[in-house]
Design a protein around this nucleic acid. Sequence first.
DNA 1: ATTGAGACCTGTCGGC
DNA 2: TGCCGACAGGTCTCAA
Length: 253
Amino acid sequence: MRGARIDRVTLRRPDLRTRFPAEFAARLEGQTAIGVERRAKYLLVPLSSGDTLIMHLGMSGSFQVATSSSSADRIERDRHDHVIFDLSSGASVVFNDPRRFGFMDLVATGDLPAHPAIGRLGPEPLSAAFDAFALARACAGKRTSLKAALLDQRVVAGLGNIYVSEALHVAGLSPQRQASTIATPNGSPRDAAYRLAAAIKSVLEYAIARAERARFRVYDREAARCRRRGCGGVVRRRTQGGRSTFYCPGCQR
DNA sequence: ATTGAGACCTGTCGGC
DNA sequence: TGCCGACAGGTCTCAA
């Protein structure tokens, strides 16, 4: 999409998780995509018009790029192909999302910081702004669990259910542990905060480096052997906040 | 203000 | 084979 003009936008239904904004297709058509960026789990496409297209994959969303320019109109459409962008390059970008938990929005680029979803996000986990100090400050005073705190996008932006479990395992911290215990009363980091911040970074870097499906340490490994050297524990699954958490009771405290 | 529960929607899988 | 409940990688809203 980067550098291409959006020639045509086809909406095959009126909504995803939310309705498309008014004049969505018309405001996109004729605009050039200046870039393709990411903030947390949101995809951002700044446009020549001064607007930014915001997209989220939800649970089941995906994009497919079709490059056959001649027969683009005759491509067989899956019933969950909801949005089609036809580009000046001849390519088509197709958004497919069976569960429709994804969404798209369009706002003036200058208004992004005020966007209800984007504006409240915490630091990017791989940025220098995210470290043990930032993590401890965000967790200080929190009565909730570490699992819930890490899923809170205001604490750190972009961790989901899988990598919260993975990071807590690397750090050797129990998902049920109270979030505030990684900080001192005045909000400075304890040892656990240093380990957890480092674990979050390393887990994400590893997952990105292995673009193919990562080999998880605990996620979806209930009843399997803990992969930590010398641990010998067994991975357990429990429900926290309606979501599955995987952890090793042997090495996570 | 924080926190936990429920809602949104469809598909897949295992058990009966 | 068919039916039913449980579960799935996210986020929002609501009530306590």
